[in-house]
Design a protein around this nucleic acid. Structure first.
Lengths: 220, 220
DNA sequence: AAATTATTTTAGGCAAAGCTAAAATAATTT
DNA sequence: AAATTATTTTAGCTTTGCCTAAAATAATTT
């Protein structure tokens, strides 16, 4: 496996995360994610395309190639192992681990990561509950839970919507619920299984049983 | 304290080590140490001078300023703590730790290093026996003696190896000499300054002058 | 369908850190 | 003291990764 620059790795990782949601990633999206300019993204996409890490046609967006995904999973593996180390061994608090792991993940020694993994006892997930890919880049997929099945007072992240109809998407769009939205379940009503939900600091609103049954979440 | 680039840090560290021996460091020496060209060294010296990290007059060599030394000791602290971590926790062999620590030392989080130090139990020296500077850059100096300078029939403890090259570490690993090893000097030969050494009840073996010059010991 | 707006790419530059070749300075021989 | 040799610096070029402004293309309105 070749070696990539810190910059290249950051682009690859960002594309990986963005394409989880969107399938294909746009120049502006990626520029936003990386706090850089669209022109810089175009430059880097040309480079990554030349290295066969992304599929890219001008003006048409891009996504990782198989090889690119493998590289991304390697970076994510390193990141999450370091996060686990920082939280578990060095007693960093949950919100501090990410920034430091962003630096550590670029240290490229393969042996370091294998030894670290062993030292940590082969953890399955990082402190945020995100699964840690194995040496071969295999990642356990999330077992999403149906929002309708959860009790009150849970903080969750929307991860999947199991219904592609215009009707539900229209409703979700109106309620400003999309993939990645953080929801807090405030109350459940036994009468009709409706739920009161809060997003950030916005006012509480209600969703019906039928809606909740189609939303799948990761518990935070 | 400001932040420096990986390149700047590598120059600062190299100057620190070279000036231990020479007092003042020359362009060619530093270029040799860093596997770079004299012209590149001159460029960097101008930059480090502008940042008041070195004293430098064209053609007259250079040395670290007080501030430069403080920065150097910070880098050395990080390097040695990581070396200790790699050897002690991840069970790296001592000839492998240096290369990986070279990468880890540039991760700049202050909190990371303080937490790591605590986790490791505030070690005093790295796996090669080099003392670890404290948070304030204070470093303990031991008065070790060079093995090459000692007469026969001495019982000594290996405390420091003044050469991090793979070549010597490979040799020492093969001869089973590491920090803390008890050696008995059985004979010295004036012809080539080689020595016969015994470890415990193992058979006597010979080491060359070049090796003995890099081993520093405490007399038992 | 044309016009307007938004997005993306191109063109041309900049800073960091390296390089080679030539010029300047210092050190050593003769 | 002059000549030669060695060292160091300067000048100018390269690559990486970023930038701004202008041009090209796509998407949306009218």
């Amino acid at each position: 496996m070749l070696n990539y620059s810190v910059s290249e790795e950051n682009y690859i990782k960002a594309i990986f995360h963005l394409q989880q949601q969107d399938g294909t990633v746009t120049t502006n999206e990626l520029a936003g994610e990386l706090n850089t300019r669209p022109a810089s993204v175009t430059d880097m996409m040309k480079k990554l395309k030349a290295k066969k890490l992304v599929h890219y046609q001008p003006y048409r967006g891009f996504r990782l190639s198989a090889e690119g995904s493998k590289v991304a999973l390697g970076i994510i593996r390193r990141h999450r192992l370091w996060e686990y180390f920082l939280a578990e061994k060095l007693k960093f608090s949950w919100d501090e681990v990410h920034a430091v792991a962003e630096e550590l993940e670029h240290v490229s020694s393969k042996k370091l990561i294998e030894k670290l993994d062993e030292f940590l006892g082969y953890p399955k997930a990082d402190p945020h509950g995100d699964p840690i890919p194995d040496v071969n880049g295999k990642i356990e997929h999330y077992s999403y839970q149906c929002l309708a099945s959860l009790p009150a007072n849970k903080l969750v992240v929307v991860s999947h919507v199991s219904n592609q109809s215009n009707e539900i998407l229209d409703l979700l769009k109106h309620k400003k619920i999309s993939i990645g939205t953080k929801l807090e379940i405030k109350r459940r009503f036994d009468f009709d299984d409706s739920m009161e939900i809060k997003i950030g600091r916005q006012p509480v609103f209600t969703i019906s049983k039928q809606v909740a049954e189609n939303i799948f979440v990761k518990i935070n």
